[in-house]
C-alpha cells in the first residue's frame, strides 16, 4: 500500500455458503477521486461496498482507512463505537433507496442538520442556515425546509439524502446505485449534481453501479466485476474505450447507443 491512498483493501474474499461473492479483491482509493465498481447483479459489487465500509466482515483479507491525521486503521478490527463515529463524520453512505437513510417523520431541515447536531452543534440558527445552504446546493427549494420528506418526489428524496450525507464534509462517500429507480431525466440532473459536489468538495467516492454510462460520466477509475472477481480495472475512459477482458467488452457493447 502506498502512503497516499485513503482506502485500501487486499485479498478480500467472502462466500455466502458455497457462492463466492468476493474472490481475492484488491482496492485502492486516492483522496478526491471517484472509483466506480460496475457489474451485473450477482457480480459482488454491493458486497464489496459493504465490506469496504465495515458493514459486512470478509472471510479473509484486510481493509485499511487513513484518517485525517495520516494514521492507518484496520476497518474490521476497529471498535464498534469508533466505526459508528466514522460513519457519522468522515464517511458517508448514499443508499439506493433514500428512505433507508432519511428520517421520514422529520423535516428536511432536521434531516440535514442531524449530523451536525450529532457532532455537537448547538446553535439553532447556524444549524438552520447550514441546512438552507445545503438544500440550495442540492437544488431543493428553500421553502421546503420545514416540509416532511413524505411530500418529496423520488429525485428530491435522493438529493435530500445527499445533502444529509455531505453536510459534515466527509472525506469518503460510499454510493450504492444512487440513481437506481429514477427517471432518465431525473438521473441526469442528479448525476450532474453529484459530479459538481464531489469535485468541488474534493470528496473521494466509491460508486457501485450496473450502469456503464453513469460510471463514464462520474468516475476517474473503474473496476469491472464478474462473479466476485475483478476482471479489469483502470482509468475509466481507457477501460471503456478499449476493453481488454471479454466480459468488459460484452458490457460495453450491450449499452444501447443513444
Amino acid at each position: 500500500m502506498t502512503d497516499e491512498t485513503l482506502l485500501s483493501a487486499r485479498r478480500l474474499s467472502l462466500s455466502f455458503g458455497t457462492i463466492p461473492a468476493l474472490v481475492s479483491v484488491d482496492v485502492d482509493l486516492w483522496p478526491g477521486e471517484m472509483l466506480a465498481v460496475v457489474g451485473e447483479s450477482g457480480s459482488g459489487k454491493t458486497t464489496l461496498l459493504n465490506v469496504l465500509s465495515g458493514r459486512l466482515s470478509p472471510d479473509s483479507g484486510t481493509v485499511w482507512y487513513r484518517d485525517p491525521a495520516g494514521r492507518l486503521h484496520d476497518v474490521h478490527a476497529m471498535e464498534a463505537p469508533l466505526l459508528r463515529k466514522l460513519h457519522r463524520s468522515d464517511w458517508g453512505f448514499v443508499q439506493q433507496d433514500p428512505r433507508e437513510n432519511l428520517r421520514m417523520g422529520v423535516t428536511a431541515g432536521g434531516n440535514v442538520g442531524e449530523r451536525l447536531m450529532a457532532q455537537g452543534a448547538r446553535h439553532y440558527g447556524s444549524i438552520r442556515e447550514a441546512a438552507l445552504d445545503w438544500l440550495s446546493q442540492v437544488e431543493i427549494d428553500a421553502d421546503r425546509i420545514d416540509d416532511l420528506p413524505r411530500t418529496f418526489s423520488g429525485g428530491m428524496l435522493q438529493r435530500l439524502q445527499i445533502a444529509r450525507t455531505l453536510v459534515t464534509h466527509p472525506r469518503l462517500v460510499f454510493m450504492d446505485e444512487p440513481t437506481g429507480g429514477l427517471d432518465v431525466s431525473v438521473q441526469a440532473r442528479l448525476l450532474d449534481l453529484i459530479r459538481t459536489l464531489v469535485s468541488r468538495l474534493r470528496i473521494a467516492a466509491l460508486l457501485v453501479t450496473h450502469d456503464i454510462a453513469v460510471a463514464r460520466l462520474l468516475a476517474h477509475r473503474i473496476m469491472v466485476m464478474q462473479r466476485g472477481v475483478v476482471v479489469e480495472a483502470g482509468l475509466t475512459d481507457q477501460v471503456l474505450d478499449d476493453p481488454q477482458h471479454a466480459y468488459t467488452q460484452l458490457l460495453v457493447s450491450s449499452v444501447l447507443q443513444a
Binding site: D147, L148, T151, F152, S153, G155, M156, V186
Partner: peptide, 9 residues
C-alpha cells in the same frame, strides 16, 4: 401550518 404538497419535479 403547511398543507402537504404534490411532488414537483
Amino acid at each position: 401550518e403547511r398543507s402537504s404538497r404534490e411532488p414537483v419535479e
